[in-house]
Design a protein around this nucleic acid. Structure first.
Lengths: 112, 112
DNA sequence: TTCCCTGCGTTTTGTTTTGGAACTTATTGC
DNA sequence: GCAATAAGTTCCAAAACAAAACGCAGGGAA
């Protein structure tokens, strides 16, 4: 089965994952919960490539998890802010944060 | 940044996602929470290829989320059961289930 | 007015991962 | 011997990805 066919799965968990279950999307949400909203902020913080970031942001906007908002008209600049729908996933990330702290100690020092 | 470098990230969410944040792993956990434990059960329920399933199960065992257990010695058969560590992610899946029910209605009928 | 800078992406070029299907191994039952 | 079952493994083409360069619209400095 292809990943893209998951959005109409009978299982609500599967449908949720069809939006946020890929490699980088939940990391974007993490940054959004931390208050980040600009393309460059996401790019730097998460370490993902700009290519992938652009694609994921577009998808999250299409799905109504983020909203693309003009915050400067000249030059035109957009940022990405959480919708109510997006906010409602915050508790899931909190659980993952606690789980990571408890079960996934850092083995070697990472820079930043 | 490569996905594999995430396991030593400063952020506990990122470290958690380095284990369960890929396309299919959380679907395996969903099935485990529903009581499934055998390779064939996971394969059929999730619709993922056996190839990927085998890889993900191996990783989950390595990370201590599942335990590989001999349940038949002749012929040798193994199944996969949740550890305490694995159980502790259940609440995150529950949030995703509720979110999916609320925000991701099924658009067309999918077969099982 | 020529040049560099910032913010936000897009394109290009290889590498890695994935999907799909067939194959393997060990054992039981017919 | 022959099919069935369970748990993987192997192969190849297709898709996704990483890294880095490029594009573009304005701003500011020289």
């Amino acid at each position: 089965m292809k990943w893209s066919e998951l959005s109409d799965n009978w299982c609500p968990v599967a449908r949720t994952l069809s939006v946020v279950g890929d490699r980088w999307t939940l990391l974007i949400l993490r940054d959004a919960y931390l208050g980040k909203s600009k393309f460059e902020e996401f790019a730097e913080s998460s370490g993902m490539t700009r290519h992938i970031l652009a694609e994921r942001l577009k998808r999250l906007v299409e799905e109504g998890v983020l909203e693309r908002r003009l915050y400067s008209s000249a030059p035109k600049r957009y940022n990405y802010v959480l919708t109510d729908k997006g906010e409602e996933l915050r508790p899931a990330l909190r659980i993952m944060k606690d789980w990571g702290k408890k079960h996934m100690p850092v083995r070697r020092e990472a820079k930043a």
